[in-house]
Computed example of a mutant assay.
Amino acid sequence: MRNKFGLLIYVLLILNSCSNKSQVSLIESSNFNEGIQNKKVHLFTLRNSNGMISQITNLGGKVVSLWVVDANGNYEDVVLGFDTAEKYIEAKEKYFGALIGRYGNRIANGTFKLNDSIYSITINNGVNHLHGGLEGYNAVVWDAEQKSESKLELTYLSKDGEEGYPGNVLITTVYELKDDNSLAIKYRATTDKSTPINLTHHSFFNLKGAGKGTINDHLLQINANYFTPINKEIIPTGEIISVQNTPFDFRRLKSISNGLYNQNEQLEFGSGYDHNFVVNGAGVRTVAKVVEPTSGRVMEVVSDEPGIQFYGGNFLSGTKGKNGKTYEYRGAFCLETQHFPNSPNQPNFPSTILNPGEIYTSICIYKFSTQP
């Protein structure tokens, strides 16, 4: 009898422990049943075999949620976003979780010269062009096909003249939630005219959980010996300078706040960190790592791109997001794998020109794990 009673207590303790674990709370797919641009908006749910879940909409290819376990088995949604399509459309924050193109980041004065022609593209960020313009890829409805429980394929035909860019560009983006607890994003594009292209992904991460305070206590490592300094308009000057003895030295893990408040012209120009780093090496390699000490969550960024933009949430200002949570100032970070900003106007930067007959490819992987 005593043994049975002990077993019952043990079972109750296990059940109580399980019930105390934070659980996944999915957004209703009906919240994304909208008709936009004569296309249907949908919300897709991806799962891997370990219990990791992501919800992605074909409206801008946005990652709406990403549920990641911590060191104690608790799940949290670690990306900022909204819980209806309508809120994404109306929001001031247009880039939460989005696919970005035709050109991620900034192009100075919204102009560039290509094959003896000067192109004027949409100006939407002061006097500059940012993230593809007023109706960049973050704002369009992509054609979507869920290939499996863990894989989603999105396609979009970006037409000649869209936002001022030359060429019909056909883009395919594949999201895959892999069993190594990574979210892999693969891009492929072709064009019928020479054009600049620089695709990237713009999730805003907080590894404590979206809306759970500042990210300044996260530990960050960026595998870069150099970065591209900017002017007052956050446009690269064309220089490539060493991170050594600057607040931009993240070659070893350190808290994001370490150096953030230094007297530094570059930090003043960016209102904090909003800079492109020149990633060491070539090919597919680990380009960055983030550790959140309280939860034990770790995120590694793997890519074949030559650069990565680190943005520290400097312009977040109390937006209300999923479940009514407030997204506070510096309450998220972005790590956007990319070619360099303003490359079409900087001949010493790696080229971003795609020509007819060529195939553009890029890969970005956000891989999650835990540590004690």
Rank of each mutant, 00 (worst) to 15 (best):
S194H: 07
E305H: 04
L7N: 04
N223C: 03
N125I: 10
T294P: 00
V141G: 00
K322C: 01
S22E: 14
K92C: 01
S65A: 04
K4M: 14
G313P: 04
L316V: 05
V64Q: 01
K212V: 09
A139N: 12
S182Q: 08
E28V: 10
F32Y: 12
F112K: 03
K40A: 08
Q371K: 12
A139R: 13
T319Q: 15
G126N: 06
N48K: 02
G101K: 04
H202L: 05
S29N: 10
G110Q: 07
F44N: 07
H275D: 08
I197R: 01
Q37S: 13
T337K: 00
H202R: 04
L12F: 13
D116N: 15
V69Y: 00
L43N: 01
I359K: 01
S22H: 13
T237A: 00
E93Y: 14
Q37F: 13
S54C: 14
G318Q: 14
S343H: 05
L154F: 10
A288L: 04
N198T: 08
P372K: 07
P341D: 08
T352G: 00
N58K: 00
K87S: 09
N314W: 08
T45W: 04
E328Y: 03
T195N: 00
M1I: 11
L134S: 14
Y165F: 15
G307F: 07
F269G: 00
T191H: 03
G81L: 04
E145V: 15
K208C: 06
K151E: 15
L267V: 09
P344L: 08
L316C: 06
K322L: 02
L267F: 08
P196N: 02
D192M: 12
N276M: 00
N125Y: 15
H131W: 11
L15Q: 06
S295V: 14
Y187T: 10
N125P: 10
T361A: 01
D160T: 14
S30T: 15
S362A: 12
N280Y: 04
K367D: 05
Y226G: 05
P347K: 06
R47P: 01
D274Q: 08
W67F: 10
I123V: 15
D83S: 12
N223H: 12
T237P: 10
V68P: 03
S30H: 14
K62I: 10
N109A: 06
L26K: 11
C18K: 14
L43E: 07
T111I: 14
K186V: 13
F349S: 04
D217Y: 10
F96C: 01
V284D: 11
H129W: 13
R102N: 02
A144W: 13
K151Y: 02
H218E: 12
